[in-house]
Simulated scan of single mutants.
Amino acid sequence: MDFLIQWSLFLLASILLGFFLEKRTEKEQYLYLKFVFYACLGSVSFPVYDIQLPLGIILFLIVLHPKKNSRYKRYMALFGFLFFLLQLIMGPFDTFTLREETQQMGQVTITDESFDTLMTHIDRRIGDDSLRLEQSQLLFDQGGNLRNATFELIAKSPKRFIRYEVTYQEVTGTLTYRPREEVLTRSLEVYYQKLIDASTSFQTLKTLSIKQILHESKTPYVEMDLDGLYETFSLQDATVLLINDQGELIPYVNTGDDVLANAIRLTYLRSDGQSLREKTILLYNYSFETSRRKGVVR
């Protein structure tokens, strides 16, 4: 359940419970607001490493000792504490959390609409604005048939990150979603902020001129690796092409400055699985500012 919805329902329940208890108490100024305060206090927690300590209820029991209507104020604090416990229990079941599941896709050709459909299914199924790409790998043949693909993605909830692995296998024609792990938000925040939005990478793949790549390939298979990190590249000795807004590949004119970009690395594979030494780097989402000015370290 969304974080704001949880708290809205909690506050509404606290107000209703306070209204009900107020009729049973001694007269006290601002009692109604005090009830809501004690409920909120009981729900307060404090993170220590990966553990959430119930700081609010501890303060109430040790520090605060209300003399008037103490029993009912204790009820409100305990109600807040129950909300804290409920958050711990319900935490792993955020709305965008997936159980492992499989979706039938059939054969996918990377040069036609079936590939666009594949990418759209992934984006919609995990479907969260926070979704970012860690890395992915696609293998296709000279005919454009997608043999297999793996996407490693991160989605963010108010309190944690959830890593997903999405795989496609040509043999079965299936797309499989697997939640891999959950990590507290603060543990991955800096790394997460350096990753590209998954939708941006998916859109790049959809518009990329795959036919141009296949036409220039000298081997039966091409492996395509995407890294979600926005990196600094020194391109003195690499074969580099830029992906323009239309998905076309254009030569990179080396000016001597580093380039900030997301990269797609192409590896050319022979039938026996051995790779050629020749590799190509395709850059998208790029900036020609120097790394020193941008403050990014490779």
Rank of each mutant, 00 (worst) to 15 (best):
D2H: 09
F3E: 14
F3Q: 10
L4Y: 11
L4H: 08
L11T: 15
L11D: 10
A13I: 13
S14N: 02
G18Y: 09
G18N: 08
F19P: 07
F20A: 15
E22A: 05
K23P: 14
R24A: 11
R24T: 11
T25D: 15
K27M: 13
L31D: 13
L31N: 15
L31P: 14
L33F: 07
F37I: 09
Y38Q: 04
A39S: 13
Y49L: 00
D50A: 14
I51H: 07
I51F: 05
P54W: 10
G56I: 01
F60I: 05
I62S: 08
I62Y: 01
V63Y: 04
K67Q: 12
K73I: 06
A77Q: 09
L78V: 13
L86F: 12
Q87L: 01
T95S: 14
L98A: 14
L98W: 04
R99K: 13
Q103N: 06
Q104K: 15
G106R: 07
V108W: 10
I110W: 12
E113N: 15
S114F: 05
S114G: 11
F115S: 00
T117K: 14
R124Y: 08
I126W: 02
G127T: 10
G127L: 07
D128C: 01
D128E: 05
D128H: 05
R132Q: 09
R132H: 09
E134N: 11
Q135W: 09
Q135C: 09
Q135T: 13
Q135A: 12
Q137S: 11
Q137T: 11
Q137E: 10
G144W: 09
L146M: 08
R147A: 09
K159L: 10
R160E: 15
F161W: 03
R163I: 00
E165A: 11
E165N: 11
E165Y: 02
T167F: 05
T167Q: 01
E170K: 03
T174R: 08
T176K: 04
Y177N: 06
P179M: 01
E181A: 02
E181Q: 13
T185E: 00
Y191K: 02
Y191G: 03
Y192Q: 00
Y192S: 03
Q193Y: 04
I196F: 03
I196Y: 05
D197T: 05
D197V: 01
S201A: 10
S201K: 02
L205C: 02
L205H: 01
I210R: 06
I210V: 12
S217R: 07
E223N: 12
D227M: 06
E231M: 08
F233P: 02
F233W: 13
F233R: 12
S234Q: 11
Q236C: 05
A238R: 15
T239S: 12
V240D: 07
I243A: 02
G247Y: 01
I250Y: 00
V253Q: 14
G256I: 07
L266C: 02
Y268H: 06
L269E: 06
R270T: 04
D272C: 03
G273L: 06
G273R: 04
G273T: 04
Q274M: 00
S275H: 03
R277I: 00
E278L: 14
K279L: 01
L283T: 15
Y286V: 02
Y286H: 14
S287V: 07
F288K: 10
E289G: 15
E289D: 15
S291A: 13
R292H: 07
K294P: 08
G295I: 02
V296L: 10
